Amino acid sequence: MRTTDEIYQELLSAFRERSGYGAEDACDLAVRLYAVAAQVQALECQADWVLNQSFPQTAQGAYLEDHAAMRGIARQAATRAAGTLRFSVEEAPTQDLSIPMGSVCMTEGGMRFQTTRAAVLAAGTLTADVPAEALESGSGGNAAAWSITVLAVCPMGITGCTNPAAFSGGADAESDEALRARVLDSFERLPNGANAAFYEEQALRHQGVAAAVAVGRARGIGTVNVYIAKSSGAPDAALLRAVEADLQAKREIAVDVRVLAPEESRLNVTVELDVGENGNFAAVKSAAEQAIAGWLTGKLLGKPILLAELGRLIYAVGGVKNYHILSPSSDRQGSATTLYILGELRVTEMGA
């Protein structure tokens, strides 16, 4: 890409060759030539940008989505983290306490979560568990167990809240690089209506499907099992039925297709962090927990769980000087039938 000054010098040189005399820097002609050079440089920038958007290898944003649409691929939308909120009282009540749908609790960092149905803390009991989700979509909603402790919209009579298990499944909208990889993969693994790429691509077109792995001859000749996962884990029955109905309509003749949920396997993660003498361990711990929870999602179905990848993720967290992964102690092989989900997550300070 030529700079404005380079184009200006070329214009001056061309003028000198044709006229036999040059133009002084401060003269009117020089000013005009410099203005022309600036416009030519802007046109070259525009032409270069248009060229980049013309190919999926370099396109960005909405233009990359247009290339994806030509391959029948859409950008995966952001999803909300889901989990369970546990509401509590200090003394067992003599009558039922209502917990309305939409009751809000927060982490100390201000991330908000709301209940997705109404519930009751029964008389004579101290706690009630209620399904909930993050108020905002994205990986920021992934929260470690016991990290949600603030009642934002307090149901009458309720004095405490927490989350006995991690909130997971929150994922940011698919990045350009991830979408680009899927688009380019669709050229390398051309779906032909009968291969694994065809079944996986069709499954991934359904909203909520974060990963899909097709296994041929799973139950003998002429059979195909397609395992799918949501970002939050195994799919629900409704999603399984929708994907299977779609694939049944599109499968090749005489092929028996089944869409199945993988078996969930909880993976406990224990990490020690060194944040240095002046580091804020609480802040770094929270960021590390969020990064780990955002990584270990349903998108990893069929892919190996590599300690090297986990280590890279932890070391990329701002403030981490060093780390030590205590568990898992070894890599986990990827499998279409097994989905690793986050179990107990413990992040402690190294040397404490």
Rank of each mutant, 00 (worst) to 15 (best):
G20R: 06
G110N: 10
L240S: 08
A254D: 13
L307R: 13
W146N: 14
A78Y: 07
H206N: 10
R75T: 12
A81E: 00
P131A: 13
E91W: 01
E252D: 11
E44C: 10
L326N: 10
S88A: 12
Q76T: 07
A30R: 03
A229K: 00
T79C: 03
L64F: 00
L151E: 09
N52V: 00
N192L: 08
M156H: 11
D331Y: 08
R219W: 05
E44A: 12
L135Q: 14
V183W: 00
L239Y: 05
D129G: 06
N52H: 09
C105M: 08
A316N: 14
G294F: 04
I148V: 15
G141S: 04
V347C: 05
E263T: 15
R312E: 15
S231P: 00
T159I: 03
A38R: 13
I148T: 05
V213D: 06
D172P: 10
E264C: 08
T149I: 13
S147I: 02
K321P: 00
A14W: 06
T348N: 11
A74C: 04
G157L: 09
T84W: 14
M70D: 14
M156Q: 15
V226W: 01
R258H: 14
A181Y: 02
T3S: 15
G279E: 05
T337E: 15
G222F: 08
T149E: 11
R258N: 12
T297I: 03
Y21H: 14
S265G: 01
A152H: 13
A35R: 11
R241S: 15
C45M: 11
L151F: 12
M1K: 10
R75V: 12
V224A: 01
P100F: 05
A42M: 09
R217W: 04
K299F: 07
D28Y: 07
L326A: 12
P262K: 10
T125K: 14
S54C: 06
I253T: 08
P164R: 11
G141I: 02
G193E: 11
E344L: 07
P155H: 11
A69S: 13
E174W: 02
I292F: 08
G170Q: 09
E344D: 12
Y340M: 07
T127C: 15
L184R: 00
A119M: 06
A173I: 13
R86V: 08
E244T: 02
Y8G: 00
T125I: 05
Q60T: 09
A134D: 03
N142L: 05
P304T: 10
V150P: 03
N163H: 11
G302I: 04
S175H: 05
A68Y: 01
R180I: 05
V209T: 06
A212N: 02
I253W: 06
S137R: 15
S137W: 02
P304W: 07
L179R: 01
